[in-house]
Design a protein around this nucleic acid. Structure first.
Lengths: 147, 147
DNA sequence: ACTATTTGGTCAAGCAGATTGACTATCGGA
DNA sequence: TCCGATAGTCAATCTGCTTGACCAAATAGT
């Protein structure tokens, strides 16, 4: 084991943080200043066909109560709505509002913007290789980092 | 910009989390069950010649009060001591105790242990390349991810 | 069909880790 | 020698999350 691989944790963390911070800043700059990165993780799950509170909780790796609270906040802010669930009357389906969709598009743009200098630095080849390598390493677990 | 580069954030986050979680688990398994990853970031700064509360706060990207609180906790648990600062009577120098050093060694071992399967998966060549690429991307900013 | 258990969600209270604000002691330059 | 800046702590507060209790609807067992 190469000795200086030991700072790989630090590098990984720095890169991850730079990325998330950059995206967050981009999203705020586009007018969505009342959101945190944690909300972005929620949006990622809701995009598509929506999700229940329970599914969201699992995705975010928090309790249902915490997820429910966040949903309440997002409803208040106008990013999502709670509707009846087509298959289960107990459950409620959370879906993005137009504002919520606009925000996810903004996030995609922001992400692309942050990634652009990375592509410039490394070249598209090595960036793609980086992505490929990471995809072989990353366990498909939760991603919320509550440290 | 390649379209599927957009999940690089997710991959980066997964990898970072897997790494930190793995190290944390390894540290706990070695008998230091009363510490969280956040403490590890503090230890990283204290290893060497120690640091003041202010320096620690900057490193962790928290207020001095928060850092002071953590130091108090680490003192209580026996990992660090507060000593007088050689150059400044206002400041106090925080240094690791033998127990603190033992813990940092444990963390290094744990990190190596987590990295080993990574080296097996990617091969030493590409792992080194990964490290090199990341080191070109990572801004030398804070790493504490409080999302 | 009828009851019992499980599951989806919310309400309420409490905790942990951070923040802001106020204060003391010391440093260092005019 | 004074006075603003800096190191650190004490105290109060905020926020996001957890645990615990609960209701309503779904599902399983008989």
């Amino acid at each position: 084991m190469d000795r200086d691989l030991l700072d790989l944790p630090v590098l990984l963390l720095s890169a991850a943080r730079a990325l998330v911070d950059g995206i967050d800043a981009g999203v705020r700059a586009r007018g969505f200043a009342d959101l945190r990165p944690a909300h972005g993780f929620a949006f990622a799950r809701l995009a598509g066909d929506g999700a229940t509170v329970g599914q969201l909780a699992e995705h975010l790796d928090v309790t249902k109560q915490a997820a429910s609270q966040m949903v309440e906040e997002l409803v208040t802010k106008g990013y999502v709505t709670r509707g009846p669930h087509p298959q289960d009357a107990r459950a409620r389906l959370i879906v993005l509002t137009p504002k919520g969709w606009a925000c996810t598009r903004a996030a995609d743009e922001a992400a692309a913007e942050v990634l652009r200098p990375w592509a410039d630095t490394l070249g598209p080849q090595r960036l793609a290789a980086l992505r490929a390598d990471l995809s072989r390493l990353a366990t498909p677990g939760r991603l919320r980092p509550t440290w």
